[in-house]
């Protein structure tokens, strides 16, 4: 069966979303899928709009960009406003409610609102782990990659000495995602 995930991680430069994309793509490859990761950015490394895209498929991936994401992560108001209009009713949207206050412009039925940045701060004391919390939430909700693969991929790409902190962040995100999924199902 043809299976394809078009995942867009959007927010602000400096949030680590490109690294998040790389980790997600690496995890998918570990699970035996094909994956490509790309990004678009302006001249600024910090503070500007940032977007990372990951395509995961069980077939060869040719065109590496995403037209309409079927999974969207929004980690800034600007990113939410810009990308939520592209997504269809069937898409999954995960919104960081710490940073996105005006929600409702998207048509997605599967809308997950999680205070990702706040959760990162609470669990690890560091806002900068929000990208890893977000990855946990994506995996917890969508199951696009296995828990083992995402853990392994996170550990491969983070600086030495931050393993414990990042695992905490990942687990917090997964838990929050799974709980929300159960609440919405019931």
């Amino acid at each position: 069966m043809f299976e394809k995930w078009d995942i867009r991680l959007s927010g602000t430069g400096g949030q680590g979303l490109i690294l998040g994309g790389i980790i997600l793509a690496s995890a998918a490859v570990k699970d035996g899928f094909n994956a490509v990761q790309s990004q678009s950015y302006g001249p600024e490394a910090r503070g500007g709009a940032s977007k990372a895209e990951v395509i995961i498929s069980n077939q060869e991936i040719f065109y590496p960009k995403i037209a309409n994401a079927n999974t969207l992560l929004a980690m800034s108001q600007q990113a939410y406003d810009k990308y939520c209009v592209d997504i269809t009713e069937d898409a999954t949207i995960i919104i960081d409610s710490t940073l996105v206050k005006n929600i409702g412009a998207d048509k997605a039925k599967k809308r997950f609102i999680i205070p990702i940045t706040e959760l990162a701060k609470k669990e690890t004391g560091r806002e900068m782990t929000a990208n890893i919390v977000a990855l946990g939430a994506i995996v917890g909700i969508t199951k696009v990659v296995s828990e083992e693969a995402i853990k392994e991929a996170v550990l491969e790409r983070i600086p030495a000495g931050t393993e414990e902190m990042n695992m905490k962040a990942l687990n917090a995100g997964m838990k929050a995602g799974q709980e929300l999924l159960q609440t919405m199902a019931s």
Binding site: A25, Q37, K65
Partner: peptide
Amino acid sequence: EVIGHLREP
């Protein structure tokens, strides 16, 4: 630029 910055396995 697409190929230069693209990541794949």
